[in-house]
Design a protein around this nucleic acid. Sequence first.
DNA 1: TGGAATGTTGGAAC
DNA 2: CGTTCCAACATTCC
Length: 245
Amino acid sequence: MPEGPSIVILREEAARFKGKTIARAEGNTRTLDLPSLEGAKIKAVRSFGKQFLIALPNTALRIHFMLFGSYRIDERKASAPRLSLQCTDGSELNFYACSVRQIDADLDGAYDWRGDVMSPDWDPALARKKLRAAPDLLACDALLDQDIFAGVGNIIKNEVLFRIRLHPLARIGDLPAPKLRQLVEQARQYSFDFLEWKKQFVLKQHWLAHTKSTCPRCHIPFKKGHLGQSRRRSFYCERCQKRYA
DNA sequence: TGGAATGTTGGAAC
DNA sequence: CGTTCCAACATTCC
């Protein structure tokens, strides 16, 4: 659910809610004044990185699914929704176990879409510039940095590092320019591969590194560790993923 | 079945 | 006051 491509799928599934009017807003969210949403017309359904955005006339709703969040469209789960938006035509958007926030209605002022790996506005040169400004950052932390690669999560991190043969503990400042360029290119490319595979329900079978125990190139055991500042799981091959140090 | 995980926030501690 | 660390949140799967 949580990584950028999954949010793009949600955005596509929810696109038909644009123009609908909220008849009733319910849920156990404590960060929203639900009655004030009733009568509002959905102006747009957008996404930024791992965030799902619903633009309303005077405000916008930001849904972040964290680790456990989920959603249902025109269906309900057994558990209580964090937020349920029921439209005048009977269709509904239901969100569970997620973080909900109301934000500035001017989404284009609030977000810089050049930093979203899934966005048509993605700017690889800007990402390279941000990376060059952080030479001490480790590759595993760089990919998870939402200010550089909004939408990239831990699965994409592990797969990109394996794909470009880069060690998770490689220091950004040590990377040769072509490797830095490849890191930025593949952060986006893998995210789109992820999107297609997820749509076809074949994402997991394409994982080469994430949760794997053996390197498919070298056939030696993967190293595992909670690396970098993020302490997120890394699966990597000491033989074919280089550190450049 | 207990523990860990596709993640982020906010407050304590230093 | 800035930085870092850690608990909290809450669901599913192995």
